[in-house]
């Protein structure tokens, strides 16, 4: 399992709608902020890259020291972004695909406002379980 893994879901207006630290290593105090910063820096790269391919999984789009940013862009341009030190590309792709399906179910709820924070604790539990399984 990845030591460091920070996962965020960014809505169309570039505002995060979900965040989770899913790595196994002990957390640095400022880890969350650092991770947010790195992921946000990657957004511009993602934006351009997304238009060059019809694939949703964009693999690694940016680097920071030994950390890599991998991204998955959905049809509605919601970005699933993972900051990680793992090299398990297949695992990462599977993780993204399964989270994507969960996201669609959240979206199908008419009482969920697209672009708003995902507050479902079930979603959080399942995402963390998927991270343990695939990353």
């Amino acid at each position: 399992m990845a030591n460091t893994a920070c996962f965020i879901i960014v809505g169309r207006n570039d505002i995060p709608i979900y965040e989770a630290e899913v790595g196994s290593a002990a957390k640095r105090e400022d880890a969350a902020q650092l991770h947010q910063f790195i992921l946000h820096a990657a957004l511009d790269v993602v934006q351009d890259l997304a238009w060059t391919t019809s694939a949703m999984f964009l693999k690694s789009v940016d680097r920071f020291n030994d950390l890599v940013v991998s991204v998955y862009v959905t049809a509605g341009h919601t970005r699933l972004m993972l900051l990680h030190d793992s090299r398990n590309e297949d695992g990462i792709k599977s993780f993204f695909q399964e989270v994507h399906e969960l996201y669609i179910k959240i979206l199908l709820n008419p009482l969920y406002l697209p672009g708003s924070r995902i507050s479902s604790s079930h979603f959080d539990t399942k995402v963390r379980a998927l991270a343990r399984k695939y990353l």
Binding site: L111, Y112, S120
Partner: peptide, 10 residues
Amino acid sequence: VDFVELPDTC
């Protein structure tokens, strides 16, 4: 009903 979940406010 399909994937409806009532938020706390509802």
